[in-house]
Design a binder for these strands. Structure first.
Lengths: 193, 193
DNA sequence: ACACTCATGTAAGCTGTTACATGATTAA
DNA sequence: TTAATCATGTAACAGCTTACATGAGTGT
């Protein structure tokens, strides 16, 4: 089915940018958000970590556990931060799925609220377009729609509305944070939107 | 990432059970719901139709277009209906993604409201569990959460609430439909829940 | 001529899962 | 000793997309 998947590589890199972790740590953390974005299987996660290592985007330190098996703690390198930033700078695809949105949200640079706002704004546009398309579907045929189809349409519209509401209130909240921000850099970044 | 995908084969079979269509028809129809469940590429859809044909679950009729290229109209066979029913009868996986829920909704037998209600009820349980899990994540650490993580959590909770609301009101509506149903069979089916 | 929509199909490749394999440590 | 959690890894396979190929009809 269509919809560009977020590269697992960059997502993992983004998580490691926040704090050093082992592969197992990543899996546990993502299990918390399993419903939203899923948790990668070991069969995909560990090879990704190895690939990042070979490209020198992360470094390892083997930490022998005191009362556990030894763990490989990965941390991002300067080259990794650079590659990550380059990836973040290119905006999400127009048809990006919910999962991609949340993934980017999770690895968003929380120091730059301006960037976060831009990300939410892009999502808002996408969801609004989607809702308009669904509305067309509802209005067009109407009578001839099967019960299941009517339900699916109504379901999609309800979720779209909820998402728009959340996006609006969150953007408003973030904007206030930004304006009343004690950090001068944040405010300067804001005017750059 | 984890989460069992719905077999495209059975989904297509379910669509053909509602009305005969060509592969292109299916793609156009699903493009309307693209955001919700995506639309299969030709590279996956056409082979699936061929496979269904080889298993005698569908039949083809080549209709020469008057002012268009010829189309292959597929329709479900008795064996196909049997296979479809067997597949529908086994309940959705516990970790089934939103997409799978909507797909099953679309191909649900609209004659059996009782079955539909059961499907919604299962989904309701899953979403409620999910929300509880997210709540744990929120309550547990709280202070130590990164901004992006707090946002992702809030986003997930907002969507879960919206979905539960929709499910509740839809189930209520369907229940009323069921009780006031003019069709005796529907009522009898209801008592079998 | 050219491009566009309709309509079907094939082949290569990417991404991910499942299943398997290993091994340490803790608790019943 | 048996099972369970922690922790990492490999190999086979499934499913899907992309890119390509074909061809009819329609409009510019």
């Amino acid at each position: 089915m269509s919809g560009g998947t977020v590269s697992l590589q960059f997502f993992v890199l983004g998580l490691l940018a926040q704090r050093p972790m082992s592969g197992y740590d990543i899996k546990r953390f993502l299990n918390t958000l399993n419903w939203l974005i899923g948790s990668p299987s070991g069969g995909s996660l560990y090879p990704v970590l190895r690939a990042l290592l070979q490209e020198d985007l992360v470094a390892v330190e083997v930490v022998p556990g005191l009362d556990r098996p030894p763990r490989k703690i990965y941390s991002i390198t300067p080259a990794g931060r650079q590659a990550l930033q380059a990836w973040i700078d290119q905006p999400a695809a127009a048809n990006a799925p919910l999962k991609a949105f949340v993934m980017r949200l999770l690895i968003a640079d929380s120091h730059s609220i301006a960037r976060l706002l831009a990300h939410l704004e892009r999502r808002r546009k996408q969801v609004a377009d989607h809702r308009a398309k669904l509305r067309e579907g509802t209005g067009a045929i109407d009578e001839r729609l099967d019960l299941g189809q009517r339900l699916a349409l109504g379901y999609g519209l309800a979720l779209a509305k909820a998402e728009l509401d959340w996006l609006d209130s969150t953007m408003e909240w973030l904007s206030e944070e930004l304006l009343s921000g004690e950090d001068g850099q944040r405010v300067r970044a804001a005017s750059a939107i």
